[in-house]
Design a protein around this nucleic acid. Structure first.
Lengths: 123, 123, 123, 123
DNA sequence: GTGGTCTAGACCACG
DNA sequence: GTGGTCTAGACCACC
């Protein structure tokens, strides 16, 4: 998942945003960690620097990173971002599942998934 | 959901496709039911006939409807379409939930959703 | 194959033409046999009489049938029609197979088909 | 076959689809090869860009090409497409030949074609 | 009346 | 520059 997939229908900059969102929300990158520079990332992934820059602007706007002019980009505190993300996920999920029920998905099928993902013990 | 939502970022034709997919998969429209004509739909929803036509072509290619030139569009048999759709949903869902677990969603939160959607009794 | 298939992408009149072409060329209908009337056929297959009429006009134009005003339509002599049809088939077939070879169809696969259709003995 | 034939009864967009299908299935175009742009093709063949676009959309839906907005269209991996295509051809062929037998085509006539196309040695 | 195709020309997001 | 979407309006075959 380190490179961009051109067959993915999503625009490249959005794939990059998602990539860093995941790293940050899962804790793989910690607050104040330095993010590789635009130029370096562009070179490594052979992507236009403008595209990287756009992705970073969006990440900054959403509060995932902060820029220090002349020094680079850094991971921001993720306090409520994580909470917001989880809430949004749960809302979407409820809507999805409600629809799925309408065309025949059963509760047991969903429970199977939960058991497979979380293990069948409590969580 | 009878009209198109221009704030929805998805293209109009895709919204129309989704609209009919749902009606057909949930059984709200039955095989061989007639679908309102291209021109009529275009007039009612103030959308260009070409856009409707594009949506209907996609629905036909995916096997949801069949067209009879000079007569209209009709709902097709939905035999395995429903099965395929459910399988695809369950796969996507497992991937989603696995990711959600990575950033902190708990099993109990998902179970709450299931109980709210399906009722807490068995299904 | 007695009725028209509305899911067939071909126009209805063309399906009817094909239907009678086959009956006549295979000998299932013999020269001077009477063809069911337009009105009767239209009623039986619940098809617009104009559509039947168009099919019969084409069949007449191609020499498969002849019309006797006030009496009905009858199967014509098929002498060279059959020869022409076979020639046309063989030409098309050679073109098809030549193309198929280009994307990887093997001679043995075609021979298997011949053996399955004609039996493996001489013909 | 580089241009569109207006005497061909098939719609223009379908001719374009066929044109590229052949190039790709025969290996004349390799995976990740770039396909001439919509606008360029439209200009060269004096066809409306929308028509080209429609052809390319179909090719994409069928898995022959993938589009990268802002970059162009590219040939996709053809793994099972080729296999599927051959299977479909063989099935159609068996049906055709079975019909042809019914109106008098002989096995020897078909064998002549095979020998002419593949050579009379084994393949 | 129906669906299907095509042209012309516009606008957008993306890189 | 690229592909993608949409509108407007025309013409065709079919029923």
């Amino acid at each position: 998942m380190a490179f961009v997939d051109y067959r993915d229908p999503r625009p490249v900059y959005e794939q990059i945003v998602d990539y860093y969102e995941k790293l940050i929300l899962t804790g793989a990158m910690q607050p104040d960690d330095r993010i590789p520079s635009v130029r370096q990332t562009a070179a490594e992934w052979s992507i236009n620097p403008n595209t990287i820059q756009k992705a970073f602007s969006i990440l900054e706007e959403r509060g995932y990173i902060y820029a220090v002019p002349g020094r680079g980009n850094f991971v921001a505190e993720t306090g409520d971002l994580l909470k917001q993300r989880i809430e949004r996920f749960l809302e979407d999920e409820e809507k999805n599942i409600r629809e799925a029920k309408a065309f025949g998905v059963k509760k047991s099928q969903m429970e199977d998934i939960l058991n497979r993902v979380f293990g069948s013990d409590e969580a």
